[in-house]
Each structure stands twice: as structure tokens, then as C-alpha cells.
């Protein structure tokens, strides 16, 4: 279970998100929708603790999350950032192992497990992460986040700049780990098809605040809302 209450935050003096509250139940997959620049990424960074809170709280499994990002990770908060940010001069294997070891898990086992979920990484495990293609890096960032054994996973634009076949594969794996391991997810995304394929519920953001909450069925029906969301 994961909850953000009354989050207000931004960069320096500039406030980007204002009084945002949302809730992700255990094993729930929730989409965070909205156009570019409405504050989705800022909200994600707020949730991880990478930007300091001006106001508001974050709860993981019913407990108040500690302030330091590193300690939030140990409380079970996984994060796949927009732009992936893999460790470029480390091998794919090291990227996964370091995440596991930093949280007291066995690195070798974590890598083996990751390769069963993402067989496409197998031929690449000894390559430097910086040399992988965009899609491979995205998969690696996901594998790295899973290696900390999270209970909640935050995904920021996981399909950005990723080729369609890999997008499908990512969607499949996310569904699988959600069912098999009961990991809850909050996905910020612009690709509506992708969201509809994995999420049950969605929040729509506008100008730094939550404008509405909706479910998959409504979203699928409401063409006007779709158009508006995507700015098409």
C-alpha cells in the first residue's frame, strides 16, 4: 500500500506540484496521466524523496516513509526514472547486482531472477549499460528497480523512446510481476494504449494538481477525454 498526502514540492522556490494526494492499494496498478509539463515527474521525484517536501507526507505499507531516498528504497520503494539513468560505465549485470546488494539481497540471485523475466538482457549482461540501446536500457532500469524487491514500483514514462516490440514486452512483464509478486505500481505515462493495457485506475494531472480520478472502462469509452489528455 502506498499513499501520498497533500504533496507540495518543486525546485528551489518554484512550486511545481501543489497539494497532491493519491493512493495505490496493495497489488494495484494505477496510471498517472496528463500532458507534458503538468508535474508528473516532479510528483514521482517527490515520492522517492529526491526533491525535498515543502509540505505533505508519503506512506509505504502504512508507515511514514523516511526522508532519505536510500532509506525509502529499503522500505520497498522501487523507482524507474524518466530517461532511465542506468549506471553507464557499469555492466548490465553490475547495475542489477548493486541494487540488490545495497538492500541486503544476494546480487547473483537477483541477476538470475532478472534474466528469467528479461531474457533479452542475457546476451548483454557483460556489456556496459551506457552502450545499450534505449529499449534495452529501459528494461535494465526496470530490472534494477525490481532487484531491490520493492512492494511499490514507481515508473516514470517507461515507454518513452522505446521501440514498439519492447513496449509490448515491458507491458507483459509488468503484468506478470504484478500478478506473481503482488507488486503495486504507479505509472506516469503518455502512451494511452500502454496504460490501458496494464492499469485498472488512473489519476489525471493538470497544472501541478490532480484534476480527476477515473477507471479503465471510463477512460476507454471517453474519446473526448482521450483527445484532451493527449492534446491531439
Amino acid at each position: 500500500m502506498f499513499r501520498i498526502s497533500n504533496a507540495t514540492g518543486g525546485y528551489g522556490k518554484t512550486i511545481i506540484i501543489r497539494d497532491v494526494s493519491l493512493y495505490v492499494g496493495s497489488g494495484d496498478v494505477v496510471a498517472l496521466l496528463g500532458r507534458n509539463g503538468v508535474g508528473k515527474s516532479t510528483l514521482m521525484r517527490y515520492a522517492t524523496g529526491l526533491i525535498p517536501a515543502i509540505a505533505g507526507t508519503v506512506e509505504i505499507d502504512g508507515l511514514a516513509a523516511p526522508a532519505a531516498p536510500a532509506r525509502r528504497a529499503r522500505h520497498g520503494l522501487g523507482y524507474v526514472p524518466q530517461g532511465r539513468f542506468v549506471f553507464p560505465r557499469m555492466t548490465a549485470l553490475e547495475n542489477i547486482a548493486v541494487a540488490a546488494e545495497s538492500n541486503g539481497h544476494n546480487g547473483k540471485e537477483a541477476v538470475e531472477e532478472a534474466l528469467t523475466y528479461f531474457p533479452m538482457l542475457k546476451p548483454k549482461v557483460h556489456d556496459l549499460a551506457g552502450g545499450l540501446s534505449g529499449g534495452q536500457q529501459q528494461v535494465l532500469a526496470l530490472a534494477r528497480a525490481l532487484a531491490i524487491r520493492p512492494t511499490v514500483l514507481l515508473l516514470d514514462e517507461p515507454t518513452e523512446g522505446v521501440q514498439p516490440s519492447i513496449v509490448d514486452e515491458i507491458a507483459g512483464v509488468l503484468k506478470r510481476i504484478n500478478i506473481e509478486r503482488g507488486i503495486a505500481m504507479l505509472v506516469a505515462e503518455q502512451d494511452l494504449d500502454f496504460c490501458l493495457s496494464i492499469a485498472n485506475r488512473a489519476y489525471v494531472m493538470e497544472k501541478g494538481a490532480i484534476r480527476m480520478e477515473t477507471d479503465r472502462a471510463t477512460l476507454e469509452r471517453d474519446k473526448a477525454l482521450q483527445q484532451e489528455l493527449l492534446g491531439v
Binding site: 515507454t159 514498439p164 513496449v167 503518455q190 502512451d191 494511452l192 494504449d193 500502454f194 493527449l230 491531439v232
Partner: peptide, 15 residues
């Protein structure tokens, strides 16, 4: 362009 299905596709992420 708004009528063009191909453009809609790349925007919507449809494949």
C-alpha cells in the same frame, strides 16, 4: 494532419 491516421498512431503510441 489531425485526420491522418498515421499521425494519430504515433501520438497515441498505437502500433
Amino acid at each position: 494532419l489531425r485526420e491522418d491516421e498515421r499521425v494519430l498512431d504515433i501520438y497515441l503510441g498505437r502500433r
